[in-house]
């Protein structure tokens, strides 16, 4: 799909910049929601920049670990069910590693500052792309 400028991510960034401009002028709950709204838009920007690469990486990791080539949400849901049924107890360390990298990927999108340096170094910022 080809559209005129601004590109999708630029539209999101434009709205976020506007919210960042007006939020200091707000008070109380509106101000708080302004800060949160800006945060939500920053998530969409990071998701746009990182989402596809993360999905490819996770699909490969899941396939290597579980043999499943199902679409990602379904593959994670199946894994979640198997863990609950105790079917993954024997492969505990392997699953801890797999699931930790999945969660790290979610945090890279939601709030990369939250990551410990051991997971944070390689986080690309959408602004830099």
């Amino acid at each position: 799909m080809s559209q005129d400028n601004p590109a999708f991510v630029e539209l999101l960034r434009t709205v976020r910049e506007f919210i960042d401009d007006i939020t200091p002028k707000l008070e109380g709950q509106d101000r708080y929601h302004g800060l949160v709204a800006s945060y939500l838009l920053s998530i969409t920007e990071r998701e746009s920049a990182l989402g596809e690469a993360i999905d490819r990486e996770e699909a490969a990791a899941l396939a290597a670990c579980t043999g499943s080539h199902a679409p990602l949400p379904e593959a994670w849901a199946t894994l979640a069910r198997d863990i609950r049924r105790g079917q993954c107890d024997e492969r505990w360390d392997e699953l801890m590693t797999l699931v930790t990298s999945h969660v790290v990927n979610k945090v890279r999108v939601s709030k990369p500052d939250h990551l410990h340096p051991m997971h944070g170094a390689a986080t690309p910022q959408p602004e830099a792309t």
Partner: peptide
């Protein structure tokens, strides 16, 4: 509210601290 929407994505931060 924006705050409740943020809670959904912040679940990952809790999972991270948990792991």
């Amino acid at each position: 509210s924006p705050a409740f929407a943020a809670c959904g994505r912040n679940t990952s931060l809790i999972e991270y601290d948990l792991l």
